[in-house]
C-alpha cells in the first residue's frame, strides 16, 4: 500500500500489507462483545429516571426533614405563645359586689395545679378589673395598684382581727403572719398563687407598709381539722412551735376558704369554672388526668386534713395513681404539712 497517491507503489508495500493482514486476525472476546451489545441495548430513558429517583432523596430528604422540624417547632412555639397570651385576657366577669374591687390582701385560693405564668394569669382576673387583664408584666408595672392596696388595708386588718380573736383549733395565729409575710421571699410565686406577683410589684414604700396587712390569715380550721389533728400528730405538734418566729420552717400557704372574707373575696363561680376550663384546655400545661384535676378542684378550698383523708380514701380504693398525683399536689401546696405514716411509707 502506498503512503501517498503521489508516491510510487512499491511491491514490498503490497507484500507488507498482505503479510500484516495475514498476521493479524485478533478479535475481541465474546464476553466483551456481549457486554457491549447488552449495554448498547439498555434503554437510556429507562435508566435515567431511575437514577434521578434514587439520587433525589439522597440529598433532599435530610433537608426536607430539617425544614419540617423547624416549621413544626415554630408553629408549636407560636401556638403556645398565643395560647398563653389568650389566657391572660380575663374572663368578662363583673365584680361580685357591684363593681367593688376585692382587696389584694384577700387570700385567694391557690392555683389548681400548675404554677406557670398562664396559671397565675388565669387566677388573677378574679379581681374583676379590666386593667388587670392583659399581661403579668403590665400588672407588675402598674402603680395605681398602690391606692387599691392601701384601700384594702383596713378591710384586711379587720378580717385578720376577727380571725385572731377566735382561733378555733388553738393554733397560734401570730405565727401565721410571719410566714405568710415571708412567703414572697421564701417561696416566691410558687405557693402564694395570685398574690405573689402583686406583692412583688409594689414599690418599696407602700409594700412595707402594707405587707403586714396583706399577710394572709391562717387557714380557718373546720370541724374536721380537729379530728385530723388528733389523728395526725404532726400538725398539732407544729402548731405550738408556730408561735416562735420561724418563718421558713413552716411556710404553709393558706388555703382557707372559710377564712377568706365571705362573698366579695370569692371569685364568681362562673369565672372560676371558666378559668379552670381554660387551664385544663391549655396545651402548655402539664398533663393532669381529668379525674385528678377534678379531685384537686374539689379539695381546693379544703384544709390539709381533708386532702389527707381523700388520699387515704383513694388508696383504699386502689386508685394509686390518683393518690400519688394528689399527694404531689398536696406537698406542693402544703410543704410543711406532715403526712401520716401510711402515706409517708408509700411516698418513700
Amino acid at each position: 500500500m502506498a503512503v501517498d497517491g503521489r508516491d510510487e507503489m512499491r511491491p514490498e508495500d503490497a507484500r507488507i500489507a498482505a503479510l500484516y493482514r495475514h498476521a493479524t486476525g485478533e478479535m475481541p472476546p465474546e464476553r466483551l462483545d456481549s457486554a457491549i451489545r447488552k449495554h448498547a441495548r439498555a434503554p437510556k430513558d429507562a435508566v435515567k429516571p431511575q437514577k434521578h429517583t434514587l439520587w433525589r432523596p439522597a440529598w433532599r430528604l435530610p433537608f426536607v426533614a430539617a425544614a419540617l422540624a423547624v416549621v413544626c417547632a415554630s408553629v408549636v412555639t407560636l401556638l403556645v405563645e398565643r395560647d398563653g397570651g389568650r389566657l391572660t385576657v380575663p374572663p368578662e366577669t363583673p365584680p361580685p359586689d357591684g363593681g367593688e374591687t376585692p382587696p389584694f390582701s384577700v387570700q385567694r385560693e391557690p392555683p389548681p395545679f400548675s404554677q406557670s405564668m398562664t396559671d397565675r394569669a388565669t387566677v388573677e382576673p378574679r379581681s374583676g378589673r379590666a386593667e388587670d387583664a392583659p399581661t403579668l408584666t403590665r400588672k407588675r408595672a402598674e402603680p395605681p395598684r398602690e391606692a387599691e392596696v392601701r384601700k384594702s388595708i383596713p378591710e384586711s386588718k379587720a378580717r385578720i382581727g376577727e380571725r385572731s380573736a377566735a382561733p378555733p383549733d388553738g393554733r397560734v395565729l401570730g405565727a401565721e403572719p410571719s410566714h405568710s409575710s415571708d412567703a414572697p421571699a421564701s417561696r416566691g410565686n410558687k405557693t402564694s398563687g395570685g398574690n405573689a406577683p402583686l406583692a412583688y410589684s409594689q414599690p418599696p414604700a407602700p409594700a412595707t407598709s402594707t405587707s403586714p396587712d396583706r399577710v394572709t390569715a391562717p387557714p380557718a380550721p373546720r370541724a374536721e381539722d380537729d379530728s385530723l389533728s388528733k389523728a395526725l400528730p404532726a400538725p398539732s405538734a407544729e402548731a405550738s412551735p408556730a408561735a416562735k418566729p420561724a418563718p421558713a420552717a413552716n411556710p404553709r400557704p393558706a388555703p382557707q376558704p372559710e377564712s377568706a372574707p365571705a362573698p366579695e373575696a370569692k371569685p364568681a363561680p362562673e369565672a372560676k369554672a371558666l378559668a379552670r376550663k381554660r387551664l385544663e384546655s391549655t396545651p402548655s400545661e402539664p398533663r393532669v388526668p381529668a379525674r385528678v384535676s377534678a379531685l384537686i378542684a374539689e379539695l381546693e378550698n379544703e384544709p390539709p386534713a381533708r386532702w389527707v383523708e381523700r388520699m387515704l380514701a383513694l388508696r383504699r380504693e386502689d386508685r394509686r395513681q390518683d393518690a400519688e398525683a394528689l399527694l404531689a399536689e398536696f406537698k406542693r401546696r402544703f410543704p410543711g404539712e406532715r403526712l401520716p405514716a401510711s402515706l409517708q411509707q408509700n411516698d418513700e
Binding site: T24, G25, E26, M27, P28, D33, I36, R37, A40, R41
Partner: peptide, 18 residues
C-alpha cells in the same frame, strides 16, 4: 435503532481491537 449499532460494531470491532 439498535440494529444500526450492531452493524457498526460488527464492522469496526476487529480493526479497533487490533
Amino acid at each position: 435503532d439498535v440494529a444500526a449499532f450492531d452493524e457498526l460494531y460488527r464492522r469496526h470491532k476487529g480493526p479497533l481491537y487490533r
